[in-house]
Design a protein around this nucleic acid. Structure first.
Lengths: 361, 361
DNA sequence: TCCATTAGTGTTATCGCTAACATCGCCTCT
DNA sequence: AGAGGCGATGTTAGCGATAACACTAATGGA
């Protein structure tokens, strides 16, 4: 009577564990969860759950016919593995966490994009944490993230609270600090020298013949480093009087317009302006134009980031180019080789930068 | 003798479980893991691990002095909870997964930003999946993501493979499909009508007096809907001959330049161009300028997205504005209220769009 | 005065999976 | 022919947390 039997197969099986009516529900008893588990699949395939686990993770250790049977059972039940349980048992989560200040500004977005793309190929997922500016939420975020036991960590910046550093070290996982360099990273670092950016920008402008200088910078840690270094380099070149405006991060075009207005109100009517982002620099261009000032005749501008639009503003924007995709990609490679147990040749990778000279200086 | 005792306190405790030398390591035995667990904290505090768990999750049910003692023990041990274990026991992961095609283009980045910001406040973390264009990786990605048992899901678009839809339904979690509307969403939807965008753009351009039309669009599902609807509306208005160029997604400025070049090569020397992104539209502006064509005199352009720079191109770009932050925010709210067990008033939320008329049309 | 209630804490049994060993044939080699 | 090895699978005992009770002492009400 196969028909009778087959009419009540696995489809209507209700997980119960056999404790339905008889047992008086012992101490740790919990209601059944109605989800398909390994042993459901195992039962259907007529093997032990361990064999199903092997089919999923190391099929080459299981007899081909068994693999076939199990695969069918998996398909029939619609089984979705529970990585929480798997990760708990193996202490490997296949999860990489990244903490960046923001992704709406596109500069970190590119980084995360290339990082995620590379990691996904290797079977890792991305846990994304946005710390905001100035990394106010980093500490709590870090805790929340570490409690998910990621296999590796991608951080932005190299300064962290003492508490954070302790936790990070304690996590004993590969950690890449990015976007800046550090003499002694917690583990690894991929970035470039913001100090050198500031200095080179100053020297570049000075060589171009500018003698009056200003800066519009975000209240962001790395922007501040660039700014200070810019000031220091100018001082060395004999320039003391540099008008400076700071804006909250993340920056946008309007802040740049506003920044130039303030500079002009402060008496800065001509000279070169170093901006901590292309968005700000674009704003300066727009504001100058609105006021009938010529660029670079009256106001010269240099940005930072070399975003897509920088080459096409009018006039085209001189800026500092960072290969932001490379940061993500290299970080991913570093993480993956560490996770694969390979030795990492360089703990600190400098991706460098280039000053792209266009029409705004 | 306090000194003697205190000199060998918890600090140097090595986890062993007392199985060091005597036991012949039974079957399921595993090497100790050296991480601090709840029971380590419990031991130090002189309570049961359940009490520590309560201090962490529902401190109001524990006596104040006990809370104090336990908190100190937690601090002293540097305990970091293991959410994998917690989630396995509770079936709640406090994880929300989002799948978007890409984040480097800033349009989805904004969305994810507002989504994450809102969720983080509520104690949820973001698991980010990038499916690429055209959602080629969606299926595999979805599987990988579901195996982490997120509490809710944020998806881009409303078309998914049959297999995916089945899995999604089976997951039994709140799901928001975004960026488009659907008559019958899997669960909830937040977006706008791409069809209406295409139609309105066509009508807008027609009303402005243009009689020759072209389109440059990405090979993206939603862009295609807009394009088709644009064509349909034009047909209705009596325009049959619309030159069309498609480009891979994600788009960038250079593709826009290239697109206009091709249109011109095909004989489109004047008229209105509907672009599927602001980046493309910007490229058209640049290319037109490079060729000495006047905008909007010879070539009129309308973009899509109203990104930051759109108001400041020269000439300023006419475009379709979407409140992309709202999409993320509303999706977050929908998810959170569903997770809180509150009924959701509207399963489908239309955030609408606006045509922002500037100088390029 | 005595029992029902309540606050605070402990005990037990899971959650769903995998590491590590155990077992069982079968084949190969000497 | 017997030892040893290997391939395929099963068994057991966790991983680190929490649900659901159980227990104890103090409190309140009649």
């Amino acid at each position: 009577m196969p028909p009778t039997q087959s009419s009540r197969t696995s489809r209507q099986r209700v997980k119960d564990g056999g404790t339905s009516a008889k047992s008086p529900s012992p101490r740790g008893a919990r209601p059944s969860r109605g989800t398909v588990t390994l042993s459901d699949v195992a039962e259907l395939a007529g093997v032990s759950s361990m064999t199903v686990s092997r089919v999923l993770n190391r099929p080459e250790t299981v007899a081909p016919e068994t693999v076939e049977t199990v695969r069918k059972a998996i398909a029939r039940t619609g089984y979705v593995p529970n990585l929480l349980a798997g990760a708990l048992a193996t202490t490997r989560t296949k999860l990489v966490a990244a903490i960046v200040p923001t992704i709406s500004g596109s500069i970190f977005a590119a980084c995360i994009q290339s990082l995620t793309d590379r990691l996904e190929v290797a079977g890792y997922q991305m846990l994304l944490g946005l710390s905001g500016y100035p990394a106010a939420r980093e500490e709590g975020l870090l805790n929340a993230i570490l409690s998910r036991r990621p296999d590796a960590l991608f951080l932005t910046g190299t300064t962290h609270s003492a508490q954070s550093r302790r936790r990070l070290r304690g996590a004993k996982i590969p950690i890449v600090e990015t976007w800046d360099l550090s003499a002694k990273p917690i583990d690894m670092a991929v970035g470039f020298s913001h100090q050198r950016v500031g200095r080179d920008a100053a020297q570049f402008l000075f060589k171009k013949g500018y003698r009056r200088f200003a800066a519009i910078g975000a209240e962001d840690e790395r922007a501040k480093i660039r700014w200070k270094s810019y000031l220091a380099a100018l001082t060395e070149l004999g320039v003391d009087d540099v008008a400076s405006i700071t804006t909250p991060a993340p920056t946008n075009l309007w802040m740049g317009r506003d920044g130039l207005s303030k500079l002009i109100a402060d008496g800065f009517t001509h000279g070169a302006v170093f901006c901590s982002s292309d968005a700000l620099a674009h704003g300066v261009l727009v504001e100058a134009q609105a006021r009938g000032l010529s660029v670079p005749g009256d106001i010269a501008v240099i940005g930072f980031g070399d975003l897509d639009f920088a080459a096409f503003t009018v006039p085209a924007l001189t800026t500092v180019r960072i290969d932001r995709f490379a940061v993500g990609r290299l970080a991913a490679e570093a993480i993956l080789s560490r996770l694969a147990g390979e030795p990492v040749a360089e703990k600190v990778i400098d991706v460098g930068f280039q000053i792209i000279e266009r029409e705004s200086t």
